[in-house]
């Protein structure tokens, strides 16, 4: 994380003394661009969080389970209310399972794992890429 900081002092000092803010901004931008072309990554990529395979797997799992919990819970409450035990719970179990699979599909699409789909979020690919980059860092 300190990479950004270390690049600043390496900038050669301005011979005309401390310049204006615009000057410094321009030099910072230049330094960042040099860094990008050198490493092939942008600063914002480096700042991205590591999304580990473990994290992705866990996310998929909870998406599925959460929708099932909500489905069965809604079915149970409807049964209590309409006194139709156990039919609402049976129906909502399957609806909850469907919603869970829909959630999983959407989560996978966001991670860029589900092929070409309109659901793909703007960050989808970067999150997936970061995951692959950082898999080796995990103990």
């Amino acid at each position: 994380m300190n990479d950004d900081q270390s690049e600043l002092p390496s900038e050669p000092p301005d011979p005309q003394g401390p310049g204006s803010l615009d000057d410094l901004g321009a030099r910072l931008k230049q330094a960042r661009q040099d860094q990008d072309t050198k490493t092939g990554r942008s600063i914002s990529d480096k700042v991205r969080a590591p999304a580990s395979g473990f994290g992705q797997a866990f996310r998929i799992g909870t998406e599925l389970v959460a929708a099932l919990i909500i489905g069965v819970g809604a079915g149970y409450l409807l049964d209590q209310w309409l006194e139709t035990t156990p039919w609402m719970m049976v129906i909502f179990f399957f609806l909850g399972a469907a919603a869970g699979i829909l959630n999983v599909y959407r989560a996978a699409a966001q991670m860029g794992l589900a092929g070409n789909n309109s659901q793909t979020a703007p960050t989808g690919n970067t999150v997936g890429d970061a995951g692959q980059d950082n898999n080796g860092d995990r103990p």
């Binding site: 929708a67 909850g96 829909l102």
Partner: peptide
């Protein structure tokens, strides 16, 4: 259901 499951997940 999918929408309601968001806070739970």
């Amino acid at each position: 259901l999918s929408y309601l499951s968001r806070p739970v997940s």
